[in-house]
Each structure stands twice: as C-alpha cells, then as structure tokens.
C-alpha cells in the first residue's frame, strides 16, 4: 500500500534524512522511533507532501506520489496528523471537520458523526472555537480532521506531545480502534510505551538513517532503540 524507498530530505545544504525504506499495509501499524533530530518529522512531512523530497520514491496505492502537493496526497487517502496540529483557531470544531470533509476529493468523506462517536467530547464542543480547546481536545480534533478525509493510511506525528498521561492513554485506545478498522497507522513517537501499545513493527532512526527495522517485541530491536535514544 505505502512503499517508501531511499527517501531523502534536505534543508538547503543540510541533509536531514539520508534514505530510508519502509512499507505499510492497511490495518498495519508501524512506529517511527528515534531521538530528537533523528529525522522523524521530516520523513513523515515529506511523505505527506508538506516538504519537498531530495531523493527516493514514495509509492502509495500503486501510484508514485513523490513530490506531489499535500492536498493531492490527502485526496488519495494518505492523511497526516501533524506535530503542531495545525488547526484553524477561529473555526469551530464543526467547521474544522466540515472544512476537511468538504474539500474536493474523489472519494466520499467519512460522516462527521463518526468522529463524534470516537470523541464524544468533540460532539459536546462542536460549536466551540478550536483555539479555545484544551491540548488534548485539540489533538482529538486534529485526528478527527484527518479521519473525515477517509484515509487508507494515517500518519501521526507525536500525538502525545505535551499531553497528560490519562489523555494519552485514551488517545492510544482510539488510535488502536482506527487501526483495527483497517486504516494503516504510521506513528512517530519518542515515547516507547505508547509506540509499543500501538505499533507491531518499528523503524528506528538515528541522525537521518534507519538503524534498525523489525518487530516491536524483538530483543535485538530493544538494543537498537536504546542505542538510538541514549547513544
């Protein structure tokens, strides 16, 4: 479904990602692990079309989407929940979801009620402005916004950042449900616990290179992850 080979990203002369490979199928879950500055966010943003690629290929659903604009990629069914959530502060919850569901697209969007079922709190706040929501609610709205685009694969960039433990736990449950419903999940995480709860496989990045790829519960992976995080 999603096949990435030799992906490179650079900021001017500085290369942030030196060629990584990964594959992901619908219903599968994969974690992209690594310390700060390992190139995780650069990788997912390049995949989603927010950043230009400096090399490599991104094939999604049988089509080469390398270098296509973000709007094109999301319409094909690859949605990103970005690290900074990138919401519209002056939009209400409902308007935010409507903005995503009414954007031009070949496939039908998911009904808004689907999001309200997953996140009942958003249903209660549908007329509240996005800018006035709590951090956890904003994260839910960002996931909801990606969800109504009816993605086949969802990229989540550090959804736990800055959130309380209780909220993170409920978010994990919801991401698991989304995955079980058949959406492929690519999770960028620094928090190993969360990654383990969501993903079955992982790719460990260190300074822009994949240093280990394999199952989450593999003992060899442990060592690689330790190495990547703590040197």
């Amino acid at each position: 479904m999603l096949e990435i080979s030799g992906l490179k990203v650079s900021y001017g002369a500085v290369q942030a990602v030196h060629g990584i490979d990964l594959t992901l199928a619908p219903g599968e879950s994969l974690a992209l692990l690594g310390a700060n500055g390992a190139g995780k966010t650069s990788s997912v943003e390049a995949i989603a079309g927010l950043l230009p690629t400096a090399g490599g290929r991104v094939v999604f659903d049988g089509a080469d989407i390398t270098g296509k604009p973000a709007s094109h990629i999301v319409r094909r069914g690859l949605a990103l929940v970005p690290q900074w959530r990138e919401l519209f502060p002056a939009f209400t919850v409902e308007e935010t979801l409507l903005a995503a569901s009414s954007a031009p697209r070949g496939r039908p969007p998911l009904p808004l009620d689907h999001v309200y079922d997953l996140f009942p709190i958003l249903g209660q706040r549908r007329l509240q402005l996005a800018g006035s929501l709590s951090g956890g609610e904003q994260q839910m709205l960002a996931i909801g916004r990606a969800l109504v685009t009816n993605p086949k694969i969802m990229l989540l960039d550090e959804p736990s950042a800055g959130l309380a433990v209780g909220i993170v736990r409920s978010l994990v449950g919801i991401v698991q449900r989304i995955c079980q419903a058949g959406v492929g999940i690519l999770l960028v995480e620094q928090n190993l616990e969360i990654a383990e709860a969501v993903a079955t496989r992982c790719v460990v990045l260190s300074t822009g290179r994949a240093v280990w790829t394999g199952r989450m519960d593999d003992a060899a992976g442990r060592a690689a992850i330790q190495e990547a995080y703590f040197g």
């Binding site: 989603a48 079309g49 927010l50 604009p69 973000a70 709007s71 094109h72 999301v74 319409r75 949605a79 990103l80 970005p82 959530r85 990138e86 919401l87 519209f88 502060p89 002056a90 939009f91 308007e95 409507l98 903005a99 995503a100 009414s102 954007a103 031009p104 697209r105 916004r145 990606a146 685009t149």
Partner: peptide
C-alpha cells in the same frame, strides 16, 4: 460557503488547509 471556508482555512493555517485536501494553487 464551502469556497469561503477553503479560503479562510488557507488564511488561518496554510499547512492545515493543505492537509484537509485544499490545493494552495487552487
């Protein structure tokens, strides 16, 4: 209108609008 919403979304957050599926060019 949907058209107005797309412009307001783009005004509010260009990356967010693109992630909804709005083309910057369009």
């Amino acid at each position: 209108s949907t058209l107005g919403r797309s412009m307001r979304a783009m005004a509010s957050n260009i990356r967010g609008a693109q992630l909804c599926g709005y083309s910057v060019e369009r």
